[in-house]
Amino acid sequence: MSISLAKEAGRPALRRRRQLLTVLKAAATLAGLEHECGVIAVCLLGKKHMAELNEAFLNHHGPTDVLTFDLRQDARPSAPAITDDDELVIAEIDVCPAVAVEYVGAHGGNPSRELVLYIVHGMLHLSGEDDQTPAARRAMRAAEKRVMDALSQRFDLERFF
């Protein structure tokens, strides 16, 4: 399993790209995805593009923090992509850095750490976690905390943009 990272043009600017990829690879392992074959594509999108995807796939208005498409199950109605290295893209995790910035502006915290949390959330969905019921949400939050605590012990999560 490998991680690809793409960013739509615009602000905020992404810094420490290689370090972020290292963090995401560790997150995938902590989420239980280390034995998957293929690429998890992480896409950092602007609010407009994220709002369009949120409307198209969930019928919700406005941008959201994270959308996860498990292409192993054809969750997105397009053919799975092949990377330049001839690896099959098995999942796409779309996140919106601007939503992270807005969230921490209103609630406190660090936007880079919030962004990593969104990606971890997507990875946990790929591992079978759900957040559709109160009990499932509690289990998801506990898994998020476990992964984020482990990442925080190994990495500086606060300076990616």
Rank of each mutant, 00 (worst) to 15 (best):
L58P: 07
L45G: 03
A31N: 03
C37M: 14
G105E: 03
E114T: 10
Q73P: 06
D94Y: 13
H125C: 02
A28D: 00
R17D: 03
S2P: 06
V23F: 03
P77E: 02
H107M: 03
A26S: 14
V120D: 01
D65R: 15
L20T: 06
A13T: 13
L53H: 12
E92P: 02
T68C: 01
E144S: 08
N59P: 07
R15E: 07
G122M: 04
V66K: 12
L33K: 06
A41T: 09
R154C: 04
V101F: 09
A9Y: 13
L20E: 00
K25E: 07
D85V: 09
A79F: 11
L117S: 11
C43I: 14
A13Q: 10
D86T: 08
V89Q: 06
S112H: 07
L20I: 04
P111R: 09
A79Y: 14
A56C: 12
V116T: 02
A81M: 15
A136K: 15
H61S: 15
K25L: 13
A28V: 05
D149Q: 13
A142Y: 06
I90D: 00
T29W: 13
A106V: 14
E114W: 09
S2F: 09
V120M: 03
M148R: 12
D149G: 06
I3F: 02
D70M: 04
T22N: 13
A75I: 10
S152D: 02
